[in-house]
Write a protein that binds this DNA or RNA. Structure first.
Lengths: 138, 138
DNA sequence: TCTGGACTCATACTAAAGTACCAATTTTGT
DNA sequence: ACAAAATTGGTACTTTAGTATGAGTCCAGA
């Protein structure tokens, strides 16, 4: 946040300086006018690059965006999705059952349904497919 | 590549137009000069963002780099690593055995050794840990 | 040449995982 | 309020996974 303020301050100062320069320019010759414009173009070009780099850095975790629409399309319920997340974390059925305060039987049912919906034969395959379908973060 | 040519062509045209505008501007009033500079700033700002976005897009695959040093440190052999990759692809021991032309017993041995080396209790947990350790691509 | 590491495989278990079926609640949308 | 979907859970079984142990082969380095 502090950097953003600094960058925008520098931008405004640069603009003011360039305005001054442009004002002087048409009192002298034509070449400096084009130089001014060129400078502005170059400066803002790199400013654009800089700003974008900062923005994309914070977008990185958004690369791990989950496609909620696809979850619906596959008919995966909230509870089933919770189980899927735990599976991808490497938990056993018993551990998931304890985490969700239900019986292992229930988890087995959820897992079985998940495998059908994800068209997988194993939970490891379910993890891979779920990540490919963007319904699980990488 | 075609897009790059198009973008740069558009840039040059924009520059020429702005040069024309600036030439007329100091024949009339001061306000249009600043408008011109502002336009150039805005245009090149977004051009910078656009160019940068294209560049960063091609950096993405480098994010999926595997740490070979860490594989050594954990004492994971080539064969074991091969098995690990297949596990992460969701294959069963039997399927891995067929893919590597060895018996299922052999794969079980490799998997057992892998779980110890990765300090995991299950193959799903091994996948998670391997990805965290950057020895498997996301 | 000898040795340790890597790879292979087998047997015999134990423990998870997964399937199939059924059934009782609970939630939710109309 | 009612039907449909979701959640829960049980039993009984089959199939994978994983452990433990032992052992034979092969290869590169001291």
């Amino acid at each position: 946040m502090k950097k953003t303020v600094f960058v925008f301050s520098a931008l405004i100062i640069a603009l003011l300086i360039l305005f001054r320069l442009s004002r002087y320019s048409y009192l002298s010759n034509d070449i400096s006018v084009e130089l001014t414009i060129g400078s502005i173009a170059v400066i803002f070009f790199f400013v654009g690059i800089y700003i974008n780099k900062k923005t994309l850095h914070k977008e990185k975790p958004s690369h791990t965006q989950i496609d909620h629409k696809k979850i619906e399309q596959l008919g995966i319920s909230k509870r089933e999705y919770e189980v899927l997340v735990y599976i991808s974390k490497g938990l056993s059925n018993k551990e998931i059952a304890d985490a969700l305060f239900v019986s292992e039987s229930t988890i087995k049912t959820h897992v079985s349904n998940l495998l059908v919906k994800l068209d997988a034969q194993r939970r490891t395959q379910a993890i891979k497919k779920a990540k490919e379908l963007q319904i699980l973060g990488h």
